[in-house]
Simulated scan of single mutants.
Amino acid sequence: MADERADGASEGELEQNDGQQFGRLPETAAERTVEGRASREAVVDYFADRFGIPPETFDDYTFWEKGAGKIWIYGGDAPSPISIEAIGMTCLRTRQEHWKPTTDFVQRFGRHASDCVIDLEREEARRFAAGEDQDLEWWNGDWGYLIAAHEIAGEREPLGIGLYVHGELRSMVPKGRQRDL
């Protein structure tokens, strides 16, 4: 079934995504001009609903898509569409069943999160940073993508994104960023 927009157009009548250029996310789904593109409202709502990150955290940022569902966050504004290699940093993958935040995003914005944050003890944090999966039956929060964090100098420090299913925390730290601590 086609996704009806406020202007009466259906998804089938929208432009196709050009994976070689950045397109700014529309404010709402009703303003969508590119088929399948997430809206700014949906992205901000996702971070608020899933992680408790206040929507105003993103007031000074714009969101962009390049490729199929690779969302970038940029501290500023730029013309859209724009053909450049990068703008800001990747923050989210959307064109899949479950949206997945990036490690960069979590390390930059994760300290604003109040929900779906798993606080790891020293050895658990070490194993997570090394890219190891581990059984953590003690977690009784939501399953799915979580922000893994560890207390450093009295402050909660986000380490990266993890996937929690069936009592196991899977480290999503990219191989090139894994560290033995």
Rank of each mutant, 00 (worst) to 15 (best):
C116K: 12
N17T: 01
R50L: 05
P26W: 01
D77C: 08
V173T: 07
R95Y: 02
Q16S: 12
G160R: 01
N140Q: 15
D115E: 13
R5A: 09
D45Q: 11
P158I: 02
I147S: 02
E124F: 00
E65P: 10
Y61G: 06
H150N: 11
V34C: 05
I147H: 00
E35W: 02
G67M: 10
Q178M: 13
Q178W: 01
A148T: 04
V34M: 08
S114E: 13
G76H: 09
R122I: 02
I147N: 00
F105R: 07
D142V: 06
M1R: 14
G52T: 06
W99V: 01
G88C: 07
G36H: 08
E4W: 12
T33G: 04
G67I: 08
W72V: 00
R32H: 05
Y145D: 08
I71P: 03
F63N: 07
P174Y: 03
P54Q: 08
I71S: 09
L25P: 03
L120A: 03
T102Q: 06
I84P: 01
E155K: 15
E13L: 15
T103H: 11
F58N: 02
D135A: 15
K100P: 00
R32T: 10
Y74Q: 03
E121R: 13
D135M: 10
D7E: 09
G144W: 06
G12L: 14
N17K: 10
G8S: 14
I71E: 06
Q178D: 01
G131C: 07
L25K: 11
E151L: 08
T103Q: 13
G141S: 11
D115R: 15
A2D: 14
G167S: 13
G141K: 12
L14I: 12
E97S: 11
V34R: 13
E13N: 12
R108Q: 09
D180K: 13
W99L: 02
E56W: 01
V165A: 15
G144N: 10
G23T: 14
R170E: 12
Q21K: 15
W143L: 02
E137V: 08
R170Y: 05
A129L: 11
R127W: 01
F109E: 03
Q178P: 05
A30E: 15
Q134P: 01
A86G: 01
I152V: 11
G131P: 01
F58L: 06
A130N: 07
L120Q: 01
G110S: 07
K70F: 05
V173E: 03
A2N: 14
E121K: 13
A30P: 01
G176M: 06
A153G: 07
Q20S: 15
P101G: 06
W139N: 03
D60Y: 13
S80V: 09
R5H: 14
W138A: 03
L14G: 11
G67D: 05
G76S: 09
R95Q: 14
R50I: 10
G19A: 15
T103I: 09
K100E: 12
Q21H: 09
L120H: 00
I53K: 05
A9Y: 09
L163G: 00
K175N: 05
K100V: 05
E97F: 02
A42V: 03
L159D: 05
P158A: 04
L146P: 08
G76F: 11
E31K: 15
F47R: 08
